[in-house]
Design a protein around this nucleic acid. Structure first.
Ligand SMILES: NC(=O)c1ccc[n+]([C@@H]2O[C@H](COP(=O)([O-])OP(=O)(O)OC[C@H]3O[C@@H](n4cnc5c(N)ncnc54)[C@H](O)[C@@H]3O)[C@@H](O)[C@H]2O)c1
Ligand SMILES: NC(=O)c1ccc[n+]([C@@H]2O[C@H](COP(=O)([O-])OP(=O)(O)OC[C@H]3O[C@@H](n4cnc5c(N)ncnc54)[C@H](O)[C@@H]3O)[C@@H](O)[C@H]2O)c1
Lengths: 231, 231
DNA sequence: TTAATATTGTGAAATTGTTCACAAGTTTGA
DNA sequence: TCAAACTTGTGAACAATTTCACAATATTAA
């Protein structure tokens, strides 16, 4: 009797890595959505969840959910669905939410102040550790318990405090110059609120929140009401 | 001598309307980008601009620019490019920026206050006319020159003042209920800042600014640094 | 034990979005 | 007046993304 061929049973690597496959921006955005959905389902006591139900949170198709998740591995059980708690943890790991990040904020104005006082960010692991401004009236004062430093010292302080991520809430006219300083300090992630195009090297990730653009989108849809649009 | 065949010379209709063609969300977003670019070029004194130069503002390809614009008509001149001032006005018209909009804001908290004091919105035609809150300490007080109304009167006031667009800056837990009121008042455009999924009827356009999602995107890119990603 | 039902994971098909490539038209300079 | 240099507008090719469809597997109930 010949011995049975042993099944290769090492832990299956994710599709994304195996294929050198690329994860699209939309997939990452939806991962955030799933994460939020799973938090809700967990709170409501669900132990497992189907791609169908997960899809409802966000007007997606079940196939889309399964495809997105399959990029990172096989997390579900056929016939049953996905284990809520476990999948939530897997996504947290994928999104980098299973740890804390050191954040600095530049521009302690209207937007900056709102962000500093927002309680949800620390809960998600984003800790605002340093504040910067160029206004002498704000420098060296405490702002909600955090000292405001002179933006002149930006690069050195960012390095000193091992800042992972910088939020930019300065006027558009200052955004590029501040960004260049941030980049020179080796920071690889920037969230920008200034309504302007900023140049960064390829290895730096820049995301922008552009409220004017969102309003323009809305006024576009008001003006074009009635014509067949895609969204 | 026979008379020349007269060229049909009626105003050419745009591709979008002719084809029943659909304008993608990305195209609208890029239109905002072009608009901003054109404003800059106009300020700098340019009379015409090529798709090539317009593309640089935003890391796009010239073909993309031409394709986007061709959805709405033929605005350029072969060999020359696009007339800056004229194209800017055309895009303003497409995006609905050649007029003013009546805006109401619900939730005069950190984010709401920042938005109320932002000077750029009125310049773009978005006039915040009404404020609402459910906090008795804020109701009937003036906030930067604008009276704060009780959210109980939301629907009636929105109709009374012919509000086109509502900004939601309330806690996530209140977002759906407030939205339902807004929708019942016949408002067709909503900009939401609460980090939650909101349901609206198909004829209502909802855009959301979700800062947590942007941060999650950034932490994802920090965690996945080095793997071949698409962005 | 079996049938009926549920649900994943994933190639393949369909759809959507982007880039190419070039004819057509414009300008510039000799 | 002509040629060289530009640049648009757009069909067609290509690429990316989404949806379909179904085999594989688990659960439940009789
Ligand atoms: N306020 C809003 O609702 C709103 C809406 C959309 C976009 N934005 C954009 O967000 C950004 C911030 O807006 P805001 O309303 O908070 O402005 P703001 O004027 O209230 O605050 C800007 C802060 O940046 C500081 N600053 C200026 N130049 C600086 C520099 N070189 N280095 C460090 N600090 C500097 C200022 O001293 C000020 O404290 C702007 O780009 C604005 O266009 C704001
Ligand atoms: N502050 C930030 O930086 C930040 C960042 C990301 C997201 N957000 C989101 O933006 C929204 C607003 O945040 P915020 O920091 O301004 O909160 P906030 O608590 O400062 O303000 C919320 C305001 O809404 C009012 N309100 C509550 N329930 C209401 C109701 N049913 N009707 C009318 N008004 C009501 C409150 O009285 C308060 O004035 C929240 O959903 C928050 O999660 C805020």
């Amino acid at each position: 009797m010949r011995s049975m061929v042993r099944q290769a049973h090492h832990k299956k690597e994710s599709h994304a890595r195996l294929t050198g496959g690329r994860v699209s921006e939309s997939t990452v955005r939806r991962l955030s959505l799933y994460y939020r959905g799973l938090s809700t389902f967990e709170r409501e006591g669900y132990k497992t969840i189907s791609s169908k139900d997960l899809a409802k949170e966000g007007r997606l198709t079940p196939a889309q959910v399964r495809k997105d998740l399959s990029f990172f591995g096989s997390f579900g059980t056929r016939g049953l669905g996905y284990p809520v708690k476990e999948l939530k943890e897997k996504i947290a790991r994928i999104l980098g939410l299973n740890r804390t990040w050191n954040v600095a904020l530049v521009g302690v104005g209207n937007v900056g102040s709102a962000l500093v006082s927002y309680k949800e960010f620390p809960k998600q692991g984003f800790n605002i550790k340093l504040l910067f401004d160029n206004d002498q009236r704000k420098i060296n004062k405490n702002h909600k318990g955090i000292q405001v430093f002179d933006v002149k010292d930006l690069a050195s302080k960012l390095k000193e405090h091992k800042i992972d991520l910088v939020i930019l809430a300065v006027p558009a006219s200052a955004a590029q110059a501040v960004t260049d300083d941030v980049v020179s300090a080796g920071v690889k992630s920037i969230l920008n609120f200034a309504p302007t195009h900023i140049k960064v090297p390829d290895d730096v990730t820049l995301r922008s929140v552009n409220m004017a653009m969102e309003l323009e989108h809305l006024s576009f849809s008001l003006v074009n009401k009635g014509y067949p649009l895609k969204f």
